[in-house]
């Protein structure tokens, strides 16, 4: 049995398309591994209790709070951070562009997490209602905007991504 135990675990992550094999200490968070080992500083620490959503990334296409995800438990995983959203030419993803155009951020600290949550939403739901947006972004706090411009940004992104969508609000 003892041979099962180790102070670290070998994990394989594909982060924003790039492969990383890492030996991570037990107890460390995915947030720390992303920021400190892989240099993905766009993923932020806000509360370390899973409430604020500033640390949100995608694990296998689904949003997760990296500050309450233990890195060792991700034996193999595909991670998308905010830094992985640009297209090959470095152009902004339509969601990023809409957030920029609609002032969907001020200090920007929560923005990466919110953009990724919006991405998960609009991937499956091309016509989100206001309530759908509220549900999808319920895991994130923003202290600057009062959420008005965020909601507008997500709706606008849908219109741009799915042009048949003109009538949503």
């Amino acid at each position: 049995m003892e041979d099962l135990l180790d102070t670290s675990a070998l994990i394989q992550l594909r982060v924003d398309g790039e492969f990383h094999e890492l030996d991570v200490l037990a107890g460390r968070t995915l947030l720390d591994v992303l920021r400190d080992d892989i240099g993905k500083k766009g993923t932020h620490l806000g509360c370390k209790t899973g409430h604020c959503g500033a640390c949100t990334v995608m694990i296998d296409g689904k949003v997760a709070k990296s500050c309450i995800t233990m890195a060792a438990t991700l034996a193999r995983a595909e991670i998308t951070t905010i830094e992985g959203l640009l297209d090959e030419k470095g152009g902004l993803h339509p969601i990023q562009q809409s957030f920029w155009d609609e002032a969907g951020l001020q200090c920007g600290y929560c923005a990466p997490g919110i953009v990724l949550s919006a991405l998960e939403l609009v991937t499956d739901n091309h016509h989100p209602s206001a309530e759908d947006i509220e549900l999808a972004l319920a895991g994130s706090l923003c202290r600057c905007t009062g959420y008005q411009s965020i909601k507008r940004s997500v709706a606008e992104a849908c219109v741009r991504m799915y042009p048949a969508n003109e009538n949503i609000n």
Binding site: A26, I68, T69, M70, T73
Partner: peptide
């Protein structure tokens, strides 16, 4: 440890410092 959503906040704040994690994932 399963999803970690419950225990990680305690670990992050040093409230809980287990000797062994058994990942059932």
């Amino acid at each position: 440890i399963a999803g970690g959503q419950e225990i990680m906040p305690f670990i992050n704040y040093g409230v809980m410092m287990p000797d062994v994690y058994v990942d059932i994932g």
